[in-house]
């Protein structure tokens, strides 16, 4: 399957989630850009998506936005000693909800599309894939931006969502 409709579904569901559950408006700043590199911030969320999609999905949050989302998601004051764990948890769970909603309409009839539990990066790093198809969409909000990335792992023999499932 082409990556564009998958990323479009991720984008639409991200905008809807931010609006409906986090009450923050977002706009597409750049859509379906083909890139060679993903720069992963601390707290980037990664989910492997199986089935016929077989892609890796990343959300790279700007820190102020993730702080905002963590606070709204928690709905309560967060003790400082637990703040980091809340932030990791929010980064993963937001990705999980977006992916869950986005893949539902993309599944073939009767197909089960497994997704991995979200993995969260602990430090900044980069993924460079000169032979892979990487697509990027950037969403901007009043609290900061988040970038959505898809890696089409069928073209990357050393990197497959199925390896994570």
């Amino acid at each position: 399957m082409r990556l564009e409709p998958i990323l479009k579904s991720m984008t639409d569901n991200s905008i809807a989630f931010l609006q409906e559950s986090m009450e923050i408006t977002s706009e597409v700043d750049a859509e379906n850009l083909v890139v060679q590199q993903i720069t992963l911030n601390r707290h980037t969320a990664m989910i492997g998506i199986g089935g016929h999609l077989n892609v890796l999905f990343y959300i790279v949050y700007e820190e102020p936005l993730l702080d905002y989302l963590t606070q709204v998601f928690a709905g309560e004051e967060i003790p400082s000693e637990e703040y980091e764990e809340f932030k990791i948890s929010a980064a993963g769970e937001i990705a999980n909800i977006i992916v869950g909603h986005a893949i539902a309409p993309l599944a073939k009839q009767g197909e089960t599309i497994n997704i991995t539990p979200p993995a969260i990066t602990e430090q900044a790093q980069s993924i460079i894939r000169s032979k892979c198809h990487i697509l990027k969409t950037k969403l901007v909000t009043s609290q900061g931006a988040m970038c959505l990335y898809l890696i089409g792992s069928d073209t990357c023999s050393d990197l497959s969502a199925r390896d994570y499932l």
């Binding site: 963590t70 998601f73 928690a74 709905g75 309560e76 637990e82 764990e85 809340f86 990791i88 948890s89 929010a90 993963g92 769970e93 999980n96 539990p117």
Partner: peptide, 12 residues
């Protein structure tokens, strides 16, 4: 739930 934030949400 493996997510702390969802456990706290649910508990609340």
């Amino acid at each position: 739930d493996d997510s702390l934030i969802l456990r706290r949400n649910m508990a609340g």
